[in-house]
């Protein structure tokens, strides 16, 4: 599985408006809806499910990255949105630092393997300092998509 297999091109937000964890999650789920990956009537329910998951423990994993996620019956395949927050978002991360890169995942409940492979893929690339640095430097959706393609081809 590659990043470009599950990241939705129309759900890349290169500059999130200043805000908090909830507003960031809402903006990203809205981008998935606008891209046609989820239905409008499911949007609020998905936001609520992701926020409920965050109550179990923050998905801010350090290194300025968060991976909020949920399993939801509204999708039949793993989908992801990416957002950059230039000013940082307080995600109550383990290391206490703000988050600048957010990968938001929605996966079908009956395909846990796809969810695990999506997390594995994202984590593997996030361990690469160059990938994180270049991602944060990206200015447009096209920049980010190009970077994901290069990462998939092991060109970073």
């Amino acid at each position: 599985m590659k990043l470009c297999d599950f990241v939705v091109p129309g759900a890349i937000v290169p500059e999130l408006p200043a805000g908090n964890k909830e507003s960031a999650i809402r903006a990203m789920v809205a981008s998935l809806q606008k891209a046609g990956s989820i239905k409008a009537e499911d949007e609020e329910n998905i936001v609520a499910a992701i926020l409920k998951r965050e109550e179990l423990g923050s998905t801010g994993i350090g290194r300025g990255v968060a991976v909020p996620h949920t399993k939801h019956g509204s999708t039949d395949k793993l989908i992801a949105a990416i957002a950059l927050a230039k000013d940082g978002v307080d995600f109550a991360s383990l290391d206490g630092e703000p988050v600048y890169i957010i990968f938001l995942l929605v996966s079908p409940p009956d395909r846990p393997g796809d969810h695990l492979r999506g997390l594995e893929n994202i984590s593997r690339h996030l361990r690469n300092d160059h990938f994180c640095k270049f991602l944060r430097q990206s200015k447009t959706s096209e920049d980010i998509w190009e970077l994901l393609t290069e990462a998939d081809n092991n060109e970073i």
Binding site: I61, G62, R63, L94, P112, G113, L116, R117, L119, E120, I122, S123, R124, L126, R127
Partner: peptide
């Protein structure tokens, strides 16, 4: 490291 553990992608 949470990041490293996630790379195991271990299924049931």
């Amino acid at each position: 490291s949470l990041l490293e553990l996630l790379t195991l992608a271990a299924e049931q």
